[in-house]
């Protein structure tokens, strides 16, 4: 499984953790990981600490996740991207759209 999902006991903190490759192959499981979590005021954390490669579909997935998060007035935080991944995020101007925690 290239993707792991942890939900806190109160169901308000959802952590999605992606493996080395964050690309189109994970889109289905990525969507499944968040699509049913619609509790108002949840906290979504996208853990990219293990990710070494990310293509544009990953960026698209993050944007869709952001749309979903905004629908339920929740927050989104990207956690610990490595240098390469962080550069991709910077090029896409994601640091203007969401919190990126290094």
């Amino acid at each position: 499984m290239a993707l792991k999902k942890f939900v806190s006991d109160d169901g308000k903190k959802i952590t999605i953790s992606v493996d080395e490759r964050f690309d189109f192959s994970v889109h289905q499981s990525f969507r499944d990981a968040y699509i049913d979590a619609d509790t108002i005021g949840s906290e979504f954390i996208l853990d990219l600490s293990k990710t070494t490669y990310m293509d544009s579909s990953a960026l698209g997935m993050i944007l869709l996740l952001k749309d979903h998060v905004e629908k339920s007035s929740s927050s989104l935080k990207i956690s610990k991207p490595n240098d390469t991944v962080n550069k991709v995020l910077e090029i896409a101007q994601f640091h203007r759209l969401m919190t990126i925690e290094r």
Binding site: H27, R31, S56, S57, L59, G60, M61, L63, L64, I91, A92, Q93
Partner: peptide, 18 residues
């Protein structure tokens, strides 16, 4: 131009995923 290009790529990806 490069920034616009990236924006287009990302939005294309987003729409494709939709």
């Amino acid at each position: 131009t490069l920034e616009n290009f990236v924006e287009v790529i990302v939005s294309t990806s987003k729409q494709s995923l939709k």
